[in-house]
Write a protein that binds this DNA or RNA. Structure first.
Length: 566
RNA sequence: CGGAGCGUGGCGCAGUCUGGUAGCGCACUACACUGGGGGUGUAGGGGUCGUAGGUUCGAAUCCUAUCGCUCCGACCA
């Protein structure tokens, strides 16, 4: 590609509305252009990189035994009604009507469609397993698109769906897909970690996310510093030391005027927060649920939402508390009736606790679970904190941020049951297919690559993803001998199958060097009057080399030039 | 959906407080010079100041409404 003729321009100044590095650089280097919130046009350079990512994904998927198909974007609303995900997706679903007034949606994902497809095509265990994938545009009306390509509303995604006769077979394919994913990310030059993930209210059992650790990421990741435990915060667990204290002073009501917070109680009584019971009231799909957890811990709302099987969950307001006879700041499970209470096992400590008294300005001391109050629903609701102990090895946990670039999970039979995706097994019994699904965001990978491969001058592409393998910078393009030499080198390389960019613009040397660095092509070849005088050579420099580092190679020595590139 | 910020040529911005009919840098066009890290000069073209109302002799500027974009949070099979 000749830069003088290619569409898309580099910018001299940073775009004003791009905060993250990948967003800023992709716009500045002329890769992408925003149409409106979360929707981008991909210009020639971006498309070259995206196609490379897609091809790596295709190769690895084919190798893993998956077959490429293409499913429709336009989908009837009723299959979403049927799967129960019309509500689950809610406003994230783009909805429209056709001319006959039929309700349609633009596909945010394809479990429904593929389940329906498979239902009609597979009747016997002999046809299983089957693993289907596609690379296709997904549409999701995200509440808040952000960070350029990291979260968008229209994006290319590779999604794969596998169907199995039994769990064991799913496990095998799942593992194979995990290996394929690791290989994909490695080939894209991304140092990605697999972490345990929450599969959501509608998901299945096992689930892993592939996360690129990055400060600009949206996900919080819990990592152990001494073993391989890694989990998304939504799912992460930690070991909580139980407190045991044999002395028992009995329940006492104490006046605590204006002392409403865990902090204030801790100060007033001179005890650690772990000796205080924290009460948090939630409104869950219109009903109040009171959550109890030890004072030094926090509630993980994803865990709570999963346990309750509820989508809509928020902290209750003081007004809502008072309407139900609760006293904000002094809530308590002691003597409370008529409100559902759920508690984290940490409250089951064998020690005296300070709890509210359900009346203004009073607390109890000496309260104990199973003695002074009883909570039947005990379930892990703890939100892991920095420095907590690892549940696998006891090591120290740390919290980092990351970008989710892939997600795999075992769906089970939820969709098969709904869509009647059944088969006749070898024992003559009709069964539901067991399903797995596997997703990778193609555009998000490009964003993630730039996010983790750049310096102060611009993008530093890995060879495998770069829009081209080499950029030839022709300095002093007016000079016919330079122009001819650069052109000839360009044509030779292109003939040999090397993806080459020729900067044949009439720009000053500084501009060309700066743009070559900004675009991030791995190797730069400078052809100039100077290099021609210097034994008819070209100066080769890697993007990662310092400015003045370069080697001279004779223009006739095409073999060495190519070896330097690949 | 809550909170904050911002909408002025293609891009980055000033002007808004204190109303007087739009300016700077980059980019673009032409010519000349220059030629190894965003070079120089001369001459140009391009903007209903997000939109709609209102106040006023007069609105980019004041008032009201509305739309959009970004960031933080909530949300995110």
């Amino acid at each position: 590609m000749r830069l003088s003729q290619s569409f898309g321009k580099t910018l001299r100044e940073d775009p004003a509305d791009a905060d993250t590095n990948s967003h800023r650089l992709l716009v500045k280097a002329g890769f992408i252009n925003q149409l409106f919130a979360g929707v981008y046009s991909y210009l020639p350079l971006a498309l070259k990189s995206l196609k490379k990512i897609e091809n790596i994904i295709r190769e690895e998927m084919d190798l893993a035994g998956a077959q490429e198909i293409l499913l429709p974007t336009l989908q009837p609303e009723d299959i979403w009604q049927k799967s129960g995900r019309l509500d689950a997706f809610g406003d994230t679903l783009f909805r429209l009507k056709d001319r006959r007034d039929r309700d349609l949606v633009l596909g945010p994902t394809h479990e429904e469609v593929v389940s329906q497809l498979v239902t009609g095509h597979i009747r016997s265990y002999r046809d299983l397993p089957v693993n289907l994938y596609q690379i296709q545009t997904k549409l999701r009306d995200e509440a808040r698109p952000r960070a350029g390509l990291i979260r968008v509303r229209e994006f290319a995604m590779k999604d794969a769906y596998s169907f199995h006769a039994d769990q064991n077979d799913l496990d095998k394919t799942y593992d194979r897909m995990v290996r394929a994913y690791r290989s994909i990310f490695a080939r894209c030059g991304l140092n990605v970690r697999a972490v345990e993930a929450d599969s959501g209210a509608i998901g299945g059992k096992d689930s892993q996310e592939f996360i690129l650790l990055a400060d600009t990421g949206e996900d919080e990741i819990v990592l152990c510093d001494s073993c391989d435990y890694a989990a998304n915060m939504e799912k992460a667990e930690s070991n909580i030391d139980n407190i045991i204290d044999d002395s028992k002073d009995g329940l006492k009501e104490i006046e605590t005027p204006g002392v409403k917070t865990i902090d204030a109680l801790s100060k007033k009584f001179g005890v650690s927060k772990s000796k205080i019971l924290k009460s948090v009231a939630y409104i869950v799909e219109g009903t109040m649920v009171l959550v109890m957890i030890r004072g030094d811990l926090d509630v993980n709302e994803t865990k709570l939402s999963n346990y309750l099987g509820a989508q809509d969950l928020r902290i209750a307001s003081d007004v809502e508390l008072k309407e139900r006879g609760l006293v904000p700041g002094f809530m308590s499970p002691v003597g409370l009736d008529g409100v559902r209470i759920v508690a984290d096992p940490s409250i089951d400590a064998q020690t005296d606790l300070i709890v509210g008294a359900n009346k203004e300005d009073y607390h109890y001391t000496g309260a104990r679970h199973k003695v002074d109050f009883l909570i039947e629903e005990l379930v892990d609701l703890n939100r892991v904190q920095q420095g907590d102990k690892c549940i696998k090895c006891g090591g120290s946990l740390k919290i980092e941020r990351g970008i989710e670039v892939g997600h795999v999970f075992k769906l089970g039979t939820k969709f098969s049951d709904t869509f009647g995706a059944t088969f006749l097994d070898s024992d003559g019994i009709e069964k539901s297919m067991i399903m797995g699904c596997y997703g990778i965001g193609v555009g998000r990978i490009l964003g993630a690559i730039v996010e983790s491969n750049h310096d102060e001058k611009g993008i530093v592409f890995p060879k495998t993803i770069s829009p081209a393998q080499i950029i030839i910078v022709a300095l002093n393009n007016d000079d016919i001998t330079v122009r001819d030499a650069a052109n000839q080198l360009y044509e030779t390389l292109v003939e040999r199958g090397i993806e080459t960019i020729l900067d044949d613009r009439d720009e000053s040397p500084g501009v060309k060097f700066a743009d070559a660095d900004l675009i991030g092509i791995p190797v730069r070849a400078t052809v100039s009057a100077r290099s021609l005088r210097n034994g008819n050579t070209v100066e080769m420099k890697k993007r990662t080399d310092a400015n003045n580092e370069s080697i001279n190679i004779s223009l006739d020595d095409v073999k060495t030039i190519i070896e330097t590139i690949i």
